[in-house]
Design a protein around this nucleic acid. Sequence first.
DNA 1: CTAGGTGCAAAAGGTTTGCGGTTAA
DNA 2: TTAACCGCAAACCTTTTGCACCTAG
Lengths: 146, 146
Amino acid sequence: MSLMDIKFNERLAARGFRFTSQREHVYSVLLQERDHPTAEQIFFRAKKGMPDISMATVYNCLDTLVKAGLVREVNLDRVAMRYCPNMHEHCHFHCDECGGVFDIGLPPNDGTVPGVELPKGYRVSRVEVSIRGACPKCAKRQRRQQ
Amino acid sequence: MSLMDIKFNERLAARGFRFTSQREHVYSVLLQERDHPTAEQIFFRAKKGMPDISMATVYNCLDTLVKAGLVREVNLDRVAMRYCPNMHEHCHFHCDECGGVFDIGLPPNDGTVPGVELPKGYRVSRVEVSIRGACPKCAKRQRRQQ
DNA sequence: CTAGGTGCAAAAGGTTTGCGGTTAA
DNA sequence: TTAACCGCAAACCTTTTGCACCTAG
């Protein structure tokens, strides 16, 4: 059991969830490659180290990890939900060329939304900014090909 | 044929799409009630005035309207795509209480994203801001109930 | 006349559910 | 010990597709 496991375990316990090897494994898969995988991608990666894990369990684990505040869901294109273990304030850049998803830093959330004049009365709980376009790699290739 | 039809027709023709009564009807349904309905909601509303219209046609029409620049897709929660005939620069407020979706004005897009320090090399094509929380009505009710 | 559009039914993803068996606490 | 969790398969819901018929231009 590593240092990460202690924090992981406590995080689950704090919200009344049990520790299971499946939850730990799914979380470790997310930490390994920070490419915002879909549930299906997570399933296939998780199977490598845990061949008996099922799709339903992956969904269950992801659900629990989200509720425990260890992972966030990223809803980029309606095709499939993506998952991200970066819990810092950030937004996502979705590359239309390679399909990659990149974390972009954001200033700490102070309840206001930069550039948005929200009328009186709204109570904001969460702001999600998603940016589409070409990532540096693809933008460079496009410029060369022109 | 009303004034709106002329612009509607031109807009379709400009992108090489034909005018059809189904497309016009689906668009009029979207203009009638600006509540960002799902494809299914649009289908049931459209059936009132056009009983033979099919779900597939609603999807086809919405697709065409999006491509013609008359309607935009709003991807709020992965459950179902929503549609919005407001083509001005704006973002969406999604109320967690009543499920309502409200348009919030935004300053004209100048290619930058307010509050976001985008690293060099990214080429931005579209920015989507979505805000969740409680709308004025629900926020007020919540305050009363406390 | 004919390319493009419609309606239907069937299929294709992605996600959820029901249930018998298993396990963390 | 037992409530929570897992694995499996089947169901579900939204969206897409294939195809015969229809119609705008």
